[in-house]
Amino acid sequence: MVGRWAPLFVTFLLVTGGLSFLWSAHTRNDQNEQLRMAALALNNPLPSVDTDRGELVARAGGCVACHTDTANEGRLLAGGVRLDSAFGTFVSPNISSDAQEGIGTWSLEMFAQAVLNGRRPDGGHYWPVFPYPAYALMSGQDIADLYAWLQSTAPVSTASEEHELLIPDIARAGLGIWKSLYVPENYRPGLFVERGEYLVEGPAHCATCHAQRDIVGGVSDRRLSGNSRGPDGSKVPAITAAALQDWTVDDLMFYLEIGMTPEGDFSGGHMATVIEHGTAHLSPEDLRAIAVYLKSPANKES
């Protein structure tokens, strides 16, 4: 008699087990998102914002590099940069201060929700091509300075283009589960001892390209051991301390400022964009901090 009902019972267990896993992942992400916003408000009182510092955050974070279509003489932060991936082509949106097409009407809280939690003003999820799994680790001061600088830039009324993806837009609804797996909990003071590690792990989001992605596009292993299937089909080299053993701190600083390798070659491709519109603008202190961290035992292979 029992045997008759067993298959049904097992099916019931699998379905309810699966659903409760999905539901708990979904709930865990919601909790993480609330934690991040709470940490921003409670642990990081913002006595003042510094617009000029905000530009450096935008440079370090690659905001300018990815949201300015320099190859086609696009205007600052007006979007339109295309990025081919296994999921289709993403097109970066306009994040200038324009009220209609950009983020001119956004509050600091809306902005923090986007950068830290990958949440759109309508409450939906952004595709994780927007590197919020790294930005989640950014400090409240950096977010506030960045917001102030973005709002101080010239408004550009170019409309954002739609992504051309192989997955339907409805799949975004399930991204809460994805986030529960791949977005770290939150930034907290003392999380990073060294500024270099903070820059590499947080704003500069090096692991976004220099670490492997799994089948659903998540970086579950944040070691910087390279990625043979990088953006636009590029091969992204490893930048662990072991991989960089022939590079000195000065070599790395020169590379991040002018793109020159120790052999005298000059980078091209996406890294040249990252350097030209990003790291080249950083202070010598920040470049040194990044270089020292990359060379340190903390940046390990295994």
Binding site: S234, K235, G259, S267, G268, G269, H270
Partner: peptide, 13 residues
């Protein structure tokens, strides 16, 4: 050098 390589040289690291 990088400005030119960025747009005009094959990226094959």
């Amino acid at each position: 050098c990088s400005a030119c390589h960025e747009r005009f040289r094959l990226d094959q690291d």
